[in-house]
Design a protein around this nucleic acid. Sequence first.
DNA 1: TATGAAATGGATTGGCC
DNA 2: GGCCAATCCATTTCATA
Lengths: 159, 159
Amino acid sequence: MRLDTYDNKILTVLMENARVTWSDLAAMIGLSSPATADRVHRLEERGVIRGYEAAVDPEFAGCSCTAFVAVTLESAEQRNSFLNLVGNLAEVQECHHIAGDYDYLLKVRCLNTKDLDRVISSELKRLTGVRTRTTIVMNTLKESTRVPLKPDLFREKGE
Amino acid sequence: MRLDTYDNKILTVLMENARVTWSDLAAMIGLSSPATADRVHRLEERGVIRGYEAAVDPEFAGCSCTAFVAVTLESAEQRNSFLNLVGNLAEVQECHHIAGDYDYLLKVRCLNTKDLDRVISSELKRLTGVRTRTTIVMNTLKESTRVPLKPDLFREKGE
DNA sequence: TATGAAATGGATTGGCC
DNA sequence: GGCCAATCCATTTCATA
């Protein structure tokens, strides 16, 4: 069951403004409100829409420090505890398993460089065999969660 | 004008579910609906809340390839055209100015490695003097936009 | 800036195509 | 799967503190 043009339009609108009313959304895509609501609910159930998030300016939360931390685990046994730790650390926004010299790439958001030091030295390096290389972000020029939607390319997961 | 406990709670809820109704949100934080709506509108006006985004599973959009591309510009003149290009490329979700060996770090989402090659070779390298180092993401284990909110640390931007 | 009541307008349900 | 109509419920406004 592929996504059609209506679903495409719905996703495009919801990625920009997740708080639109059904009636506004319906008017934008050219369907009635009940039909629109149905489609959105189906998209949620199928996991196409994972959720709705308010984008909060990190500066206001005191998170003025962003960094990318590349991590290598020296022993495979630490893997689960590392992933567990990372999953529970609010400061770690992202964790990717990467190809190349390092194993993981983390995106970290925290108060300042001192706080970053705490996250790396006291949290991540609590585990033995964790090597890191940190890249400090000086300025963020673009940051969006919008996925590039290409019509005719919608597919089932893994298809 | 700092953010108080109510604002804190509001942000926490909205970061998890941006489509809550005012009445539900009001019940959760312990205020009346009009008061809650007022506060949210003020948070929007002050730029604390930048917007509301549906989180779409990249796999469904055919974006099964994620990569981090470190970029160095060999001449300073290319800077503006580079930032312009990057701002207009839907495949580039993020662009950070970084400290270290490279100038910028881009987060790129596209169809597959062939499509990634197109983005890098045909789009980014259209400009002369663009050197890149690409790190392919094999698996994403955590990905959130939630900012770690620490009560008592709310502040005005730049404060 | 908060509340509560009244009025408005959007969401949901059910019947039907 | 979609539309329409009716009910239901949330949002907004306003008066008050």
